[in-house]
Design a protein around this nucleic acid. Structure first.
Length: 483
RNA sequence: GGUCCCAUCGUCUAGUGGCCUAGGACAUCACCCUCUCAAGGUGGAGGCACGGGUUCGAAUCCCGUUGGGACUGCCA
């Protein structure tokens, strides 16, 4: 038996929604789980207002970043207009469709007078011909039930009389989502429709359409099975909204989330690997993934948890890989891809790759996202140094002891061997001379050299920064006080 | 309003009638480690929405209630 054929069918918008990313991922899991599975990307762009070339590029590149490789596509729904028109023709001939010239105003006016949900079927038996303002509606059966066999939720029963005669083609001739989607799924021989729960109520309509199409076709196509994934919600438990919630996958990439971590986290939204370990290899997820195990209830997209996981992924990287991964944030000039609005705080010419490679291990275990890296190493490359003024005042500006320590430091460090261990010992002694423990003694030096009170280990940083530059900064800090 | 979906710590989840004194992860608190910040280690607090059944036995099955959500477009 052939493997499953699944498709991810997003409508283009300006960015790649994290919910879409999760849907794409679960479809991809199903395809990759089976050696013969096929993963298809079809962009549903029939709505003219959703048709921009760069939006399609956005989907394709976001999926490439996530590593969701395609077996077929990307296809454009708008390329299938002829097939959609053929579906209309056949269905019309089969008596499943009818023309309707009710205006929106008339519909609204009749609303309330009847109990029929949605459209009241006013034109159903009027035998209208095609005209300039006629939409085409589906003659939904008035009797019976349509049962959606959902792989995740089980059977969901819809009474046909609760489904109205929905529009399948606009008066302009454009075929709408329900039919276009079904037509394409049939032509692409899709075996499993995996999508968000917001589509659950579309499923019976599409099944009805599929069956109607089978009746008027020479070669019937078996219905696909359906799986409706739980929604991704915000803290208010509402569907993730593009206005209020940070839903753009691209922005997470910009912030420095690793695609591997992002994918792992996404997989955990509605699904979980066996055992107690949540951080698992992609191959493990592919092997263990089963739609039947997907949870039924909505999941909150928890950036905090994802950030933690990202930190773990970053720390698990080899240093070489970490350095490479940082490139778009620290030397974007050399990179094919670079994050939006995240220029390093230093001029490109002042960046030193060798030096960065030496500090990288120190930084790697301190960041949760790659976007945090530049700020952490800025003092190596920014000249002049910019200070955290509050920290400067506290440890140097308004602290005579801090100033004394710097003065003594300049004197004694000038002759010290320039390696972390020696510097550590020196500062211990300098502190002792002034009655300060190391915790207190390192603060003014740290602030003078790095501009802040937090950062990579001080003595390693001094070693890497170099004697000349370090001493100069100690002197500059002192001069700053008198100025 | 109508149709449909959902309900285990704050969050994501494990759990498919006895292994549950309900497990893990994030977040949170305490302590340890420590040159700052992290990371790491140890420990703590924290949950089966409620009410009825079924059963020797229910987080697990059934019904109801309550609560949340999606859909209800000549969008997808």
């Amino acid at each position: 038996m052939a493997g499953p054929r699944v498709r991810f069918a997003p409508s283009p918008t300006g960015y790649f929604h994290v919910g879409s990313a999760r849907s794409a991922l679960f479809n991809w899991f199903v395809a990759r789980h089976d050696p013969e599975g096929v993963f298809i990307l079809r962009i549903e762009d029939t709505d003219e207002s959703r048709n921009r070339e760069e939006w399609v590029d956005g989907i394709v590149s976001a999926m490439a970043w996530l590593g969701l490789d395609l077996d077929e596509g990307p296809f454009r729904q708008s390329d299938n207009a002829a097939a959609h028109a053929l579906s209309i023709t056949k269905l019309l001939a089969g008596g499943d469709l009818y023309y309707c010239d009710c205006s929106t105003e008339e519909l609204v006016a009749r609303k309330g007078e009847n109990k029929t949900p949605g459209y009241d079927g006013f034109c159903r038996e009027r035998g209208l011909e095609r005209g300039p303002t006629t939409a085409i509606r589906f003659k939904t059966p008035r009797e019976g039930h349509t049962i959606v066999h959902d792989l995740i939720r089980g059977d969901v029963d819809f009474a046909n009389n609760t489904i109205d005669d929905f529009v399948v083609a606009k008066s302009s001739g454009v075929v709408l989502y329900a039919l276009a989607n079904v037509t394409d799924d049939r032509n692409d021989a899709i075996t499993q429709v995996i999508r968000g729960e917001e589509h659950l109520s579309n499923a019976p309509k599409q099944m009805l359409l599929w069956e109607a199409l089978n009746r008027v076709s020479d070669s019937p196509v078996s219905l696909p099975s359906y799986a409706h994934l739980p929604l991704l919600v915000n803290e208010q438990r509402k569907k993730l909204s593009k206005r209020k919630d940070p839903v753009a996958t691209e922005s997470y990439r910009d912030q420095g989330y690793l695609s591997s971590a992002f994918v792992n986290y996404l997989a955990l939204l509605g699904w979980s690997p066996r055992g107690d370990e949540e951080i698992v290899a992609l191959a493990t997820m592919i092997e263990q993934f089963r739609l039947e195990d997907v949870s039924h209830s909505p999941a909150f997209f928890d950036v905090k948890k994802m950030t933690h996981m990202n930190g773990e992924y970053i720390r698990a990287l080899g240093v070489e890989d970490f350095v490479d991964a940082c490139a778009p944030w620290v030397r974007p000039g050399d990179c094919a891809w670079r994050p939006r609005d995240r220029e390093p705080p230093w001029p490109a010419a002042q960046f030193d790759e060798v030096l960065f490679t030496r500090v990288a291990p120190l930084v790697q275990e301190r960041v949760a996202t790659l976007g945090e890296v530049p700020a952490m190493v800025a003092f190596f490359f920014c000249e002049p140094l910019s200070y955290d003024e509050a920290a400067f005042a506290k440890t140097i500006g308004e602290d005579p002891l801090g100033q004394a320590l710097l003065a003594l430091g300049i004197e004694r460090l000038a002759d010290a061997p320039w390696d972390a261990a020696s510097l550590h010992q020196e500062v211990v002694e300098i502190g002792e001379a002034l009655g300060l423990n190391l915790r207190k003694a390192q603060a003014p030096i740290r602030c003078a050299v790095t501009g802040t009170l937090v950062g990579p280990p001080l003595f390693e940083s001094l070693e890497i920064l170099g004697k000349e530059k370090s001493l100069r900064r100690l002197r500059e800090a002192l001069e700053r006080v008198s100025a």
